[in-house]
């Protein structure tokens, strides 16, 4: 077999698998999003009527229930993402700075910090759900024993539920930040710090002019990856709040899942996920455009 053919032959199975799971469904989903595909047509999707942009119009509208709900879910996931990323980043940075100094037991501490990252989502969010229980949860019990609250706070229903999930998500997500920021810190040559110290730079100046610039590439990756992950947030909300998290904590994924598989509106669900996807592409493009320009100015 010639070399080129062998090369293609070797990637073929992986390409086929991804074609069937990623590419074809994506195109298929695009087609379905223009159809009124419901339970009557699910056995033969080709017979479902074309409705043009109707599904999209429903999702965009401020009048329809679904439009309002979809708008709210975008807002919710935005708040959730902003808090998770910012707080997670600074916690990760703090821990990375701590762990960058050698001390006895450092390897062990680093391993322990990674625990939340590897614990299966379902386990993590189930025990956080347990912690946040109103009557039997440890959080309310602890808050009561120090006198911060007198009555049990209901965390997992209503307005507070979004923030309860956010806390759990931060706990789960910050170790990844710590891990890659620590790796970033370890690429900084020690001599630069030594030179800066000889020149009399203060600790803050060393951080501002050496550490922070060196961490820029890692920070960029961290932020963009997290924006994309958080837009798709599902596990946290589904496990902690259930199939219907309620208006105040609805996110696009839970809304789309329910619309498609509880209300059998597969066409509408596809249109909503296409809209989510389009928004993600816009954000990614803006992000790269913005940073490209900024880094050219720096140079």
């Amino acid at each position: 077999m010639n070399k080129k053919r062998l090369a293609y032959f070797l990637i073929l199975p992986a390409v086929l698998a991804m074609l069937f799971v990623h590419i074809i469904p994506m195109i298929w989903g695009f087609v379905i999003s223009f159809m009124d595909l419901d339970i009557t047509y699910i056995m033969d999707w080709t017979k479902a009527p074309f409705v043009g942009l109707e599904n999209y119009a429903k999702g965009f509208s401020h009048v329809t229930t679904i439009g309002k709900r979809f708008g709210r879910s975008m807002l919710n996931v935005g708040i959730f993402g902003f808090l998770t990323i910012t707080i997670g980043y600074f916690m990760g940075l703090g821990a990375a700075l701590l762990l960058n100094k050698p001390f006895p037991g450092r390897t062990l501490v680093r391993g322990l910090i990674l625990l939340p990252y590897i614990t299966p989502d379902t386990v993590t969010f189930n025990f956080w759900r347990f912690i946040f229980q109103a009557r039997i949860g440890i959080l309310n019990k602890m808050l009561k024993s120090v006198g911060l609250i007198h009555d049990n706070v209901i965390w997992l229903v209503g307005n507070k539920s979004l923030y309860a999930v956010t806390v759990a998500a931060i706990w789960k997500g910050w170790p990844f930040g710590a891990l890659i920021l620590l790796a970033g810190l370890q690429t900084i040559p020690r001599e630069i710090y030594e030179a800066a110290m000889i020149d009399g730079a203060s600790a803050w100046q060393r951080f501002k002019y050496i550490t922070f610039p060196y961490l820029k590439p890692v920070t960029k990756t961290f932020i963009i990856m997290n924006i994309l992950w958080n837009f798709n947030a599902f596990n946290q909300f589904y496990v902690m709040l259930g199939n219907d998290p309620g208006m105040a904590a609805e996110v696009p994924s839970t809304l789309i899942l329910r619309r498609a598989f509880n209300h059998f509106e597969y066409g509408l669900g596809s249109a909503l996920s296409m809209m989510l996807f389009a928004l993600m592409i816009v954000i990614t493009a803006l992000y790269f455009y913005f940073f490209r320009i900024r880094s050219q100015e720096d140079a």
Partner: peptide
């Protein structure tokens, strides 16, 4: 980077088909 929810619906439709 693609969102899972993007494939889920058509993927299910494909499975049924």
């Amino acid at each position: 980077m693609l969102p899972g929810i993007l494939f889920l619906i058509p993927y299910y439709v494909m499975f049924i088909w």
